[in-house]
């Protein structure tokens, strides 16, 4: 029987949501939560012997968390470790990716996780562990398990995996040779015809991502510059007047803070659903530092704080959407004469 250890977060372990995100690592025998579906999908060939879970914030903020998790996994001597899937949850994705790649590197045990393609964990870890492609939220769990279980079995048995496209994982960047049905020129003609018709085609070598923007020159005279605050941490006037979604935000808000000296729990709150809101709600300056910016303004460190700040929720929000938001409000920032931006993220 193949022995599997499953790594999940506090939410899937049934311990609670963001209020429990600071939970340190724990281990239980057998399966928990989504592990049940995995066990069923193994059809008797493999079994989850233990489940390790940890709060996402705890994992990302405590360097020793990964060591504790690895030690817990090592005790079980599994044949394979499955992490998540994390779908589009950024911190969970980073946790799954870290555990999977560290277990593979330190213990030499094959590992597998699953994520949505915009999860930042994909780019960070796809060359270090196998990451299966999943939907962006837990509604895709059944499909994810159905795809991940057979791949996990293959890996545990030491079988060679097929290509990324065939198996459904993100290309690892490790190039593998193969003989195709058609010669290259014929494949090129087929690909060109598809591209011309606007049909989907699959490139044989995805270009490495070089999307980098050159840094702008430094601000020369900050003492006379107008500085704006922007946040993806969801700080909004109390009551969330623009109804910014707590996850997968469809828009952003623009708020006037002229005359506001300090954000208080009476006047502002966070709309972000991806982290424990207690601290931000108690003191929103912890996310959007209006209080100290006012002091810098009075001290003459900066010229002035812009009347408006922009806020959205970075939780599960598509990169394309975030890009569009920023594209739009950047034009307004320029029109307002803003010379520098501080962007805070949670």
């Amino acid at each position: 029987m193949i022995k599997v250890v499953h790594y999940i977060n506090q939410f899937y372990a049934g311990k609670g949501g963001e209020e429990m995100a600071n939970l340190p690592p724990e281990k239980v025998k057998g399966f928990v939560g989504p592990g049940m579906a995995f066990n069923a999908a193994f059809k008797g060939e493999a079994e989850i012997v233990a489940t390790v879970y940890c709060g996402d914030s705890y994992f990302n903020e405590n360097k020793e968390a990964v060591d504790t998790v690895i030690a817990m996994i090592k005790e079980e001597q599994p044949d394979i470790v499955i992490c998540g899937p994390a779908f589009n949850a950024g911190r969970y994705g980073v946790a799954c990716g870290t555990v999977a790649s560290e277990v593979k590197a330190q213990l030499g045990i094959p590992t597998l996780t699953g994520m949505y393609d915009e999860n930042p964990g994909v780019d960070m870890f796809k060359s270090k562990t196998i990451i299966m492609k999943t939907k962006d939220n837990a509604a895709g769990m059944r499909k994810a398990v159905a795809a991940m279980a057979p791949v996990a079995l293959k890996m545990a048995k030491g079988e060679e995996l097929g290509s990324a496209a065939a198996e459904g994982y993100f290309p690892t960047g490790i190039r593998k040779g193969l003989f195709e049905e058609k010669r290259g020129s014929a494949r090129a003609v087929d690909m060109l015809l598809k591209k011309l018709k606007g049909e989907e085609f699959e490139t044989e070598y995805p270009m490495p991502q070089f999307d980098r923007v050159a840094p702008n020159p430094a601000v020369v005279d900050l003492a006379h510059a107008k500085v704006a605050l922007v946040t993806s941490g969801g700080i909004v006037p109390k009551g969330n007047p623009d109804h910014i979604e707590s996850s997968s935000a469809s828009h952003y808000g623009k708020y006037d803070i002229d005359g506001v000296e300090v954000l208080t729990d009476k006047t502002y709150e966070t709309a972000h659903g991806g982290y424990d809101p207690v601290y931000a709600n108690a003191d929103p300056n912890r996310v959007l530092p209006v209080d100290v910016m006012r002091e810098f303004e009075k001290e003459g460190r900066i010229g002035e704080l812009s009347h408006y700040y922009y806020a959205t929720v970075g939780n599960g929000t598509a990169v394309a959407s975030a890009k569009k938001f920023a594209d739009t409000f950047s034009k307004e920032l320029i029109a307002d004469g803003v010379q520098a931006v501080i962007l805070t993220s949670t």
């Binding site: 702008n216 020159p217 601000v219 890009k323 920023a326 950047s330 320029i334 520098a340 962007l343």
Partner: peptide, 11 residues
């Protein structure tokens, strides 16, 4: 990146 692309120095 979009803010940077727009020409505003951003941290």
């Amino acid at each position: 990146k979009e803010i940077e692309r727009a020409g505003i120095p951003v941290v």
